[in-house]
Computed example of a mutant assay.
Amino acid sequence: MANLIPFTKRFESSESLVNLLESRGLLICDRNKAIQYLDNIGYYRLSAYMYPLLKMPKTAHLYKEGATFKKVMMLYRFDKKLRLLMFNEIEKIEIAIRRAVMQITADMTGNPFWLTDSSYFLDSSKFNETMRAISKEYSKSKEEFILHFKRTYSEPYPPSWILGELLTIGNVNAIYRNIKQNRIRKRI
């Protein structure tokens, strides 16, 4: 901690940053477009895509021959498309995990309300923590399926396959790890 230094850099306009990039050897064909990208995306975010185009040592902040702002934007767009594809696939996995935890446990216990029943869990303090999260999400939910359940049924909470839709994947993971019966966890 003794080697920490104060932050002394000041804010720079996008136009100033374009000048800086050019002075370091980055080729910029359309200055106005580069300024617009820096205004909309930000220099700091784009700097991650500029990094591979730097000469060694990278601390000199000089660009390799042929490094262009166009290449920076190509890397940025590629990363954005890859991220969208990955999130799409991750979402499918998350939905499958959520369904498995909520529905397999309901099937194996024969209790659609198992999620709010402490007898199905190993650690009561973790169960209570999960119930606080469930109660919070349930009480503030404006989802039509939740409002319908509240208007229609007398139970304090919906069955697990409905209630599970309100939970984060972190909540679902904590629930899975706290399920008492090992045979249920194995089937999931």
Rank of each mutant, 00 (worst) to 15 (best):
K71W: 08
R10A: 13
K140I: 14
F121W: 01
Y138E: 02
D79A: 11
P159N: 08
F87M: 15
M108D: 09
D30V: 05
R183N: 12
N40L: 13
I97Q: 09
F127W: 01
N171L: 07
K64H: 08
I175L: 09
R24L: 02
V18W: 00
S23H: 10
A100P: 04
L82R: 13
N173W: 06
M74L: 14
V18Y: 01
L85E: 11
K80F: 13
I93T: 10
I179N: 00
E137Y: 05
T152V: 07
E129T: 05
F127P: 00
I169N: 02
R183V: 04
Q103F: 02
D107I: 13
I162V: 14
R132L: 14
Y49M: 03
N32L: 07
R31V: 09
T8R: 10
Y63I: 06
H148A: 08
M74E: 15
S47P: 00
K142H: 14
D117K: 01
M86P: 15
L4C: 11
P112R: 02
R31I: 07
S14H: 05
F7P: 06
L115A: 06
R132G: 08
T168F: 03
Y153I: 03
N32R: 08
A60P: 08
E137P: 00
L53I: 09
D117G: 03
Y120L: 01
L85C: 11
I146T: 00
L53H: 04
A34C: 05
I169T: 06
F7Y: 15
S125K: 11
K142R: 15
E91F: 10
I188W: 02
Y44L: 08
E137C: 10
K140R: 14
N178P: 01
A48S: 14
T59A: 11
P52W: 08
M108H: 07
Q103N: 13
K58D: 10
A106P: 05
K180H: 02
G110A: 10
K81T: 12
E137R: 09
T59Q: 15
N88Y: 12
N111E: 04
A34I: 02
L20M: 15
E165A: 02
D30L: 07
F127D: 00
M73Y: 06
I97R: 09
A2I: 12
T109N: 02
E15R: 05
P52A: 09
F69S: 01
T109S: 03
L122P: 01
E165G: 11
G25C: 07
W161N: 13
F127S: 00
R98Y: 04
S139Y: 13
S23L: 03
E22A: 05
I41W: 04
Q103M: 11
K64F: 07
E155Q: 12
S124E: 11
T59S: 15
E89H: 04
L167N: 01
N173M: 10
S160D: 03
E143N: 12
R185V: 04
T59I: 15
T130M: 09
F11K: 10
M50Q: 05
P6E: 14
T109P: 00
I5F: 11
I97N: 08
P156E: 15
H148N: 12
T105G: 04
K55L: 14
R187K: 13
Y157T: 05
M108I: 07
K92E: 09
A67I: 04
K81N: 14
A2H: 14
I169A: 07
A96K: 13
Y176Q: 03
E143P: 06
E165M: 05
W114E: 01
N182K: 12
R31Y: 04
I146N: 00
S13P: 06
A34V: 01
D30H: 08
T152G: 04
